[in-house]
């Protein structure tokens, strides 16, 4: 049993509940203990420093301090939460003035942060802490060489000064996981590009063209499925897929899975356990290929 403080982030607790459920499903199968932290707040959606840089520091410093008090590293399932928490963690650890400022606030709420927590995204917890061999051992429903397009997105790779899980120029962790559960990773250029989510409410046509371009390219490369480690990317890629199709003037129809859903299927998860009925693009056409019940 390996324990983490679980930080699902806001979207996975609301519109993306299926991600939270799938994470808990695979955690149980893999012997990962997810410690709940009901005090944790929103990280600020990756843009809260545009409102006030200190607010980003305080609310995320608080989350880090809560995890430190619990004595475990943080497990995240959202790229943007991962980057925001990691940025604040690095800033506090490397800048004594910011450490002091954050702790001045924390002391008023009876907390203290000393910089001992690591922030880890599920993708790299699976690769590094659980290990690909252990993962292979528990696969009961190998994915039969189905073609899976990994969509990394941005905040799990960049900036690599802060996010050091993988090679930002040519990452491989996602592909390794896909292979470990029996899928065949599809190679395409836009796997590390932006899904456009941050401006979806600001300039929808441009934003959804980004997700549309990525989906179209993956389709052209023969992908049966796309998988993403981020619920914000998932909103752009799945929920807005029809809009994206219109924005780029192409036909799009590619089911998009959350990372733990892909792993979950390989670990024997069913259609309802994985919450696939909540997806916009139906998984029905590919269900037979992946032995999904």
């Amino acid at each position: 049993m390996i324990t983490y403080v679980y930080y699902p982030g806001c979207v996975a607790q609301e519109s993306g509940k299926e991600l939270d459920n799938a994470t808990k499903f695979i955690a149980e199968k893999l012997g990962i203990n997810l410690l709940q932290m009901p005090e944790a707040s929103c990280c600020g959606g990756g843009i809260i420093d545009g409102f006030d840089a200190n607010l980003k520091l305080f609310i995320n410093g608080r989350t880090l301090a809560l995890a430190e008090k619990n004595g475990f590293d943080i497990l995240t399932i959202c790229n943007t939460c991962t980057l925001t928490l990691s940025e604040v963690n690095e800033e506090i650890k490397n800048n004594p003035a910011l450490m002091k400022k954050t702790n001045a606030y924390l002391s008023k709420i009876r907390l203290k942060y000393e910089g001992n927590v690591k922030v880890k995204h599920l993708l790299y917890v699976l690769r590094d802490d659980i290990g690909l061999d252990k993962l292979k051992d528990v696969v009961v429903n190998s994915l039969n060489g189905i073609k899976v397009a990994p969509f990394y997105g941005c905040h799990i790779l960049r900036p690599s000064e802060v996010i050091k899980f993988d090679d930002a120029e040519n990452p491989s962790g996602f592909e390794e996981l896909i292979k470990a559960v029996g899928g065949e990773p599809v190679s395409y250029v836009r796997r590390t590009k932006c899904c456009g989510f941050q401006t979806i409410l600001i300039d929808e046509a441009s934003s959804t063209s980004l997700s549309g371009n990525a989906i179209f390219e993956a389709q052209e490369q023969g992908a049966d499925l796309m998988v993403t480690p981020c619920p914000l990317c998932h909103l752009s890629l799945d929920t807005y897929q029809n809009v994206a199709a219109k924005s780029i003037g192409k036909k799009l129809s590619l089911p998009v899975l959350h990372l733990p859903q892909l792993i979950g299927v390989a670990l024997g998860g069913s259609y309802s356990e994985m919450g696939f009925s909540r997806h916009n693009v139906s998984l029905k056409p590919v269900m037979a290929n992946i032995n999904l019940k």
């Binding site: 519109s15 707040s41 929103c42 600020g44 843009i47 809260i48 409102f51 006030d52 607010l55 600001i202």
Partner: peptide
């Protein structure tokens, strides 16, 4: 958008989509 997020955090601690 950003002000909306800040207000939401100030009210509930969460992001109200």
């Amino acid at each position: 958008h950003i002000i909306g997020i800040a207000n939401s955090i100030n009210k509930t601690g969460r992001l109200n989509e």
